[in-house]
Every structure is written in C-alpha cells, then in structure tokens.
C-alpha cells in the first residue's frame, strides 16, 4: 500500500512536469484519492478516431505496480478491442503481459497505439471485429468515425 502510494506520487510529479512533452495524453489525478485517475487521450491521426478526445478511467490497485491498473473508456468508442457498453479494454499489457516497469503514462500510450492498430482477432466488440475481419475497412472506419464525432468531439452549434 505504502509502496504503491509512493510510486503513484512519483508518477504524479512526473506527469506535472511532462505535461507539455506529451500533448496526446493528459493524466488527471482524483482530488482526494491518488488511486483514481482520469486520462484524456487524443485519437491518433490518420485513424477514424482523429480529432476526438477520449476519456479513460484508471483505477489503481493497492498492489500496484505489481498489479496493472484497471483501465476503461468512459467515452463511447467503436473499436474491436473495446467493449462497446462497458468500455473495457482487451490489451495484453493490462492483463497477463503486465510489467511493473509500465506507468500510467505509458499505459495511455499503449492504448493510443491500440486505437491505431486494432486486433480484430480478439474482439470485445464483435460488430467492429467482424467488419475488419471481413475486410470491410470502409464500413469499420465510417462507424468508428461516426461514434468519434458523436461521443468524442465537442457538440457543434
């Protein structure tokens, strides 16, 4: 518990310092609980998520960094590896391939990379996975772009 707190505090300081360095990621720590974080990540360019800002909820376990944080999308996203309703993310480093050398910041980077490189063979969102697997790239892209516009961009007018 103490170790996780100390480490999170170091990450917090690092985040304060690095803010300008990584404009794709904004990590915000809960005011009263260092084990609860929110992240705002920018949809990577040249993907259907471009232009969107996606909100993630990170819940850090007491055993952190021995255990990975639990991360899910709060913003709706159409992506084969993200559960459409719960926002749960299927990403190996958040499960079996976790290493204590990852940080909240690098986890966010990994999620951005996942957005750019979906893995349709282990889908949490079957509709999205099936579109990609059947080769309907246009179908997948237009669906994903639509949801980005609906959920991840500021409302127009």
């Amino acid at each position: 518990m103490q170790a996780s707190r100390a480490r999170l505090f170091k990450e917090y300081k690092e985040v304060q310092r690095e803010k300008a360095v990584d404009p794709e990621i904004q990590l915000i720590c809960d005011d009263s609980n260092i084990f609860k974080w929110t992240a705002l990540i920018k949809g990577p360019s040249e993907t259907p998520y471009e232009g969107g800002v996606f909100q993630l909820a990170l819940v850090v376990p007491e055993q952190y960094p021995l255990q990975p944080p639990q991360v899910r999308f709060l913003t709706k996203i159409f992506h084969p590896n993200v559960h459409f309703k719960s926002g749960e993310i299927c990403l190996d480093i958040l499960k079996t391939a976790w290493s204590p050398a990852w940080t909240l910041q690098s986890v966010c980077r990994a999620i951005i990379a996942l957005m750019a490189h979906p893995e349709p063979d282990s889908p949490l969102n079957c509709d999205s996975g099936n579109l990609l697997r059947s080769g309907d790239i246009r179908g997948y892209q237009s669906m994903a772009r639509m949801y980005t516009r609906l959920a991840a961009m500021p409302k127009k007018g």
């Binding site: 170790a3 100390a6 480490r7 170091k10 990450e11 310092r17 960094p65 204590p100 940080t103």
Partner: peptide, 14 residues
Amino acid sequence: SPSNDFDPCPICLG
C-alpha cells in the same frame, strides 16, 4: 531541477 539524467528504479521510480 529534476534533471533528465536522474535514473530511477523502473519499479518504484525512486
């Protein structure tokens, strides 16, 4: 100021 050559333990970051 916390310089870039500060090389922390990858696990505890201290």
